[in-house]
Amino acid sequence: MTEFRILRYDPDNDKEPHFQIYTFDGPKGMTVLEGLIHIFENIDSTLAFRSMCRAAVCGSCAMHINGLYNLACRTQIDKLGGKVTLRPLAHLPIIKDLVVDLEPFFEQYKKVMPYLIPKEDPPEKEYLQSEKERKKLDPWVDCILCAACYGSCPVEATDPEYLGPAALMKALRFIDDTRDGNAKERLAFVATDFGVFRCHTIFNCQKVCPKTLDPTKAIAKLKMKALFG
């Protein structure tokens, strides 16, 4: 028997979130997301959770799973011993059940000018960029904006002004791009008390990133650049 313990909250009826337990027989190899879908389709269609790609690339189903933030679709139930406890992402208002309001997360993201500001007018064909230069972007560009890092970061709990790991990593992604001409302004914007200097290097974001990226390292790099150029 598989047991799901899910933190539920219905804005129409509940004052406080509360846990609800569901049990069912799930096949071997079932993921947490498949378990949620099973409950939704067969047991309780009022359950709310986000899902989309089921292949760990869209970032919809990030949540707190047995003590760690992860994507529900890439977590096997067997590996959790058949007992699953689910809570929504922290530091973002709960709308319903496992669905949180992502607007604060995306608002921070938008602040870092998350788009290329070209150094020069584009050439007729592509900008030339060596593979070595491009590879510098590799550690940052795979971010799927799932907000697992945001939920795991204790600084977000106390300071909603803090830009957060994903947004800061995005800033570095453009600073490190040979095609971008705005590094100085970008750096000035993040090298502040609500930017990189608010990070206490707790490593939670590095620990939970489902794409195994390292926002902590990105923030450390930004600090170095800000302090030593």
């Binding site: 290329l116 070209p118 584009p122 592509e126 593979e131 972007l137 560009v141 791009d177």
Partner: peptide, 11 residues
Amino acid sequence: EHWGCPFSRTE
């Protein structure tokens, strides 16, 4: 590419 898409590169 001009908008920043990180394509892989030739030599």
